[in-house]
Simulated scan of single mutants.
Amino acid sequence: MTHLVHHRHRPTALAAALVLVGTLLLGLTACTTTTGAQRPGVVVTTDILGDITREIVGDQAEVTVLMGPGADPHSFGVSAPQAAKIEQADLIVHNGLGLEENVLRHVEAAREAGVDALAVGEGVDPLTYASDDMAGRPDPHFWTDPLRVRTAVRLITDRLIEHVDGVDAAVVR
Rank of each mutant, 00 (worst) to 15 (best):
H7K: 00
R54G: 14
A84G: 08
T128H: 11
L127P: 06
P140A: 01
A110S: 13
I92M: 05
L28D: 09
M67E: 12
E122I: 11
S75P: 13
A71Y: 10
R137T: 14
D133R: 10
P81Y: 03
I52T: 04
R173Q: 05
V65F: 09
D72E: 06
C31P: 06
V43A: 01
S131K: 06
V103K: 06
G36T: 13
D47Q: 07
T53D: 04
E62Q: 14
T64E: 14
D59S: 14
A119N: 07
P11N: 00
V107N: 07
V93E: 00
D145A: 10
A89N: 08
A110W: 10
D158H: 08
V107T: 09
I56N: 05
R8D: 00
V78G: 05
R54T: 11
E162N: 13
E100V: 01
R173K: 02
R10N: 04
T144G: 15
G96M: 04
R8G: 00
V42E: 02
T128D: 13
A13T: 11
A61L: 08
H163E: 03
H163P: 04
H3L: 11
P11K: 00
I48F: 15
Q38C: 13
G123N: 09
T45P: 14
V172H: 01
A15N: 04
H94R: 12
T32P: 09
A83G: 08
L147Y: 10
R159T: 14
H106S: 01
L20V: 14
A170S: 09
D47Y: 11
T157C: 03
A152V: 01
V167R: 00
D72L: 07
D139T: 01
T53H: 02
G58S: 04
I56V: 11
V78R: 08
I56F: 07
A110G: 12
H94Q: 06
L99A: 08
V57H: 07
Q88H: 15
D168F: 06
D139K: 00
A80W: 12
G123F: 04
G98T: 02
D158V: 02
L18I: 11
G136H: 03
R10C: 01
E108P: 10
G123Y: 10
E108T: 15
G50V: 01
V115L: 02
I52V: 14
Q38G: 15
G70V: 08
D139Q: 03
T144Y: 15
V63A: 08
A16C: 12
A119T: 08
R150V: 13
V57N: 03
P126N: 04
R39H: 10
T157D: 05
P81F: 05
A80Q: 14
T157F: 05
L118G: 12
A16V: 14
D47H: 12
V107C: 07
V167G: 02
A16P: 11
A83I: 05
D133T: 09
V5S: 09
G50Y: 01
R39K: 15
H163Y: 10
T144H: 13
T33H: 07
D47T: 07
M134H: 12
D59Y: 12
L26S: 14
G68A: 07
V93P: 05
G166L: 03
A80I: 12
A152D: 01
M1C: 04
A15R: 08
G136S: 06
L26E: 03
C31V: 15
L118R: 09
V124C: 06
R150L: 12
H6F: 09
V5P: 02
V44P: 05
A89L: 05
Y129F: 15
R8P: 05
D59Q: 14
D51E: 13
H106K: 01
V21D: 03
D47E: 04
